[in-house]
Design a protein around this nucleic acid. Structure first.
Length: 104
DNA sequence: CCCTTGACCAAAC
DNA sequence: GGTTTGGCCAAGG
């Protein structure tokens, strides 16, 4: 199992639909926390990876400055997943990324 | 309990 | 524009 904090992060992230994005900062804020850095740690553990049949879309979480950020199974892989969902990415950055942000 | 480690962030340079 | 710096918070050793 995971800690209560991680579970809150995962359940919040589950609400982000295909083709939308959230940021580590927003995600933390949505669970009334400022631990955006710890959110990143939660993603890195990632017990319910999307590729592994889980329902937690970890690849839809990007940096608040519009850059894609990192990914446990490779940044390139994350970029491909996002593009596949219709999100335009140029040189590691989301284009017009505010248009794709999910509003909690 | 102290110390280290990060899929981070904002400000400063 | 980029890079560095200090701060942030939860987890694990």
């Amino acid at each position: 199992m995971t800690s209560p904090f991680y579970n809150k992060v995962y359940s919040a992230l589950r609400k982000v639909p295909r083709g939308k994005l959230t940021t580590y900062r927003n995600l933390a804020h949505s669970i009334k926390s400022k631990a955006y850095r710890a959110v990143g740690t939660a993603m890195n553990k990632n017990p319910y990876s999307f590729a592994d049949g889980g329902d937690v879309p970890c690849h839809r979480v990007v940096n608040s400055n519009g850059k894609v950020g990192k990914f446990a199974s490779g940044t390139e892989n994350k970029i491909n997943l996002l593009k596949r969902e219709g999100i335009p990415i140029k040189d590691g950055k989301i284009e017009r990324f505010e248009e794709f942000l999910y509003k909690f």
